[in-house]
Write a protein that binds this DNA or RNA. Structure first.
Length: 185
DNA sequence: AAAGAGTCCAACCGCGACCAG
DNA sequence: CCTGGTCGCGGTTGGACTCTT
């Protein structure tokens, strides 16, 4: 009887692994990605014998195993960038992450929730912002509405398209930052 | 030193987009 | 077109860690 229950538990456990990844699992996943590339997560999940779902494999790779991942605290520049991009794009974390080399969407999302949203809350409680800020915010809001498609100004729309076309850009440089700051000011 | 509160971050979940058949 | 499978994204959760009392 008890044995049967144990068996049940084992098979249930065998179905799909959950929770924290072990070093061994990481190693297997990294090997699989080397073979298949960072795509075909379903294939990777099944061929490695990890008993993880494809989603889980993808997440682990994207947020932890991927090369060039930057760890540690955000620099002032990065923080400022996140704030500006969030103003412009809203909760488009993957898009924001795309402009911060080595940072993941998950990391930025977490950082925003634990640090920046509180910072903003505090600053909003304080003295109302200067006229300059409201001016730039107005500009940003106009751009934002363009992104969501609610504004039809073709000039601004094409500017934004240009701005977010990074196909020819080296992602490891932060040259685009100045471009962005110019754009917002 | 211990307990409770607060914070951080890795991982999971649900949903929508995309694509091949 | 429709459908099923897969992927990617954003929101949420849970547990480990740190801080405060």
């Amino acid at each position: 009887m008890a044995l049967r229950n144990v068996e049940k538990l084992i098979t249930a456990k065998k179905e799909i692994n959950r929770g924290a990844w072990t070093v061994e699992e990481d190693r297997k996943l990294a090997e699989a990605v080397e073979i298949h590339g960072p795509k075909q997560w379903k294939t990777i999940a099944t061929t490695t014998g990890l008993n993880r779902c494809g989603k889980s494999c993808r997440l682990r790779w994207m947020n932890y195993l991927r090369p060039n991942i930057k760890r540690g605290s955000m620099s002032d520049q990065e923080e400022d960038l996140i704030l500006r991009l969030h103003k412009l794009l809203g909760n488009r974390w993957s898009l924001i992450a795309g402009r911060l080399p080595g940072r993941t969407d998950n990391e930025i999302k977490n950082y925003w929730k634990s640090h920046l949203s509180k910072k903003i809350e505090k600053s909003n409680e304080g003295i109302s912002r200067k006229e300059e800020d409201s001016k730039s915010e107005e500009k940003i809001n106009t751009s934002k509405s363009t992104v969501t498609g609610s504004s039809e100004d073709p000039k601004i729309s094409s500017d934004l398209d240009d701005f977010f076309d990074f196909s020819n850009e080296n992602p490891s440089t932060l040259e685009w930052v100045s471009k962005f700051v110019d754009f917002c000011s």
